[in-house]
Design a protein around this nucleic acid. Structure first.
Lengths: 191, 191
DNA sequence: ACAGGTGTCCTTACTTCGTAAAGGACGGCG
DNA sequence: CGCCGTCCTTTACGAAGTAAGGACACCTGT
């Protein structure tokens, strides 16, 4: 052994790298297995190094993860009826949430901060600009439905504690049910 | 000190007492603070005593808590249109979930087991017996909406980590939004 | 070129958690 | 009276979160 410097890891740490690694672990082995030490290992770094980039520790990491999954951007160029816009936004949100089933419980639990709140406001504006009255209530209802749908879909896909094989959370049945309920909700929001 | 027997606690342990105490802690100080030792303290017992009644330990406790909050019974005597029944069931579910905000993330994450599944099947039967076609999809959509609504409502009530004062999770705004979206969804499920 | 400052990462150590293992008290039954 | 099953305690170990302080590389101005 030539006395590896051991300090200064190959590629320096950054918030983005940390978040990526954390999502990878959470999605691959469950939130419970996302620990500081394991995260450090994945980043080729000792656990304590993470605290320099996330001063409030694990709590801060959880906040960032939740926000990262919740903040959805929909191409604002899409014109069309409010129904089409609402549908597009709901689908995009569902897709974003399903891509990281491991941190879903965070997204559902942690109060929305920053980017997520902005995304919601944007959506409200887009819908009322497309002619929908009561866009605020509508967006809140849509958000609730999307969140709940994804939660049920993930929980039914057996993404719980048994550390089952990392099957894809997305299912055919889930998609059908989602679209069905979404149709109904949008229809009901109209009149 | 007259050498208290120290063994055989004043009142013997039971699954019901354990669950009650666990809910009390989780709702009062957050899921994160629900530990075996604390739970033992609340029950005047050493932590390990709990394992006698819950052989799989904390995992089993979480399962029981999730099921306890999710399994909702609605008075089956209520006759009426499917719309009325659906509304009654949705309100009852929301109330049940809001009563225990501390374990909401479990209810949203853990796959439904036993009593909860039976309750859902019962609801499907009640709705189709009241003349609704596609009751299965309808119930799944309603469930998703209720879960999501409660999740958003709880997260917006600041029931997160700051260990804020145990404000009631139920809010006036939340209730209005919930009813609004529920109206829309039920309306949409009809046509 | 060099002394000091700054930002990044490591080492060590303490507390708390979940739980395996084994033991002790109590009540009932032979 | 001795034995045994039930319920609880003791003890102990490994893993987790993180506070405190140290070490190193790099940048800065002179």
């Amino acid at each position: 052994m030539i006395a590896m410097p051991a300090k200064r890891p190959p590629v320096p740490l950054s918030l983005e790298r940390i978040v990526d690694a954390a999502l990878h672990i959470a999605d691959g082995q469950g939130l419970r297995r996302l620990t500081m030490r394991r995260l450090g290992d994945a980043l080729q770094v000792e656990a304590m190094a993470i605290y320099h980039h996330l001063p409030r520790g694990k709590e801060a990491l959880m906040d960032v993860l939740a926000e990262h999954v919740t903040a959805v951007q929909v191409a604002p160029d899409g014109l069309g009826t409010w129904q089409e816009r609402a549908r597009a936004w709901a689908r995009a949100s569902r897709t974003a949430l399903l891509e990281h089933p491991g941190v879903l419980s965070l997204a559902l639990t942690k109060p929305s901060k920053g980017a997520a709140l902005i995304a919601v406001r944007e959506q409200v504006e887009q819908l009322q600009e497309a002619g929908l009255e009561g866009a605020g209530e509508a967006v809140r209802a849509l958000r609730a439905y999307v969140f709940g749908s994804v939660a049920v879909e993930v929980q039914r896909s057996g993404w719980a504690d048994p550390d089952a094989t990392v099957q894809n959370a997305r299912t055919e049945d889930g998609e059908r049910d989602f679209e069905h309920g979404l149709d109904a909700l949008i229809r009901g929001l109209g009149g």
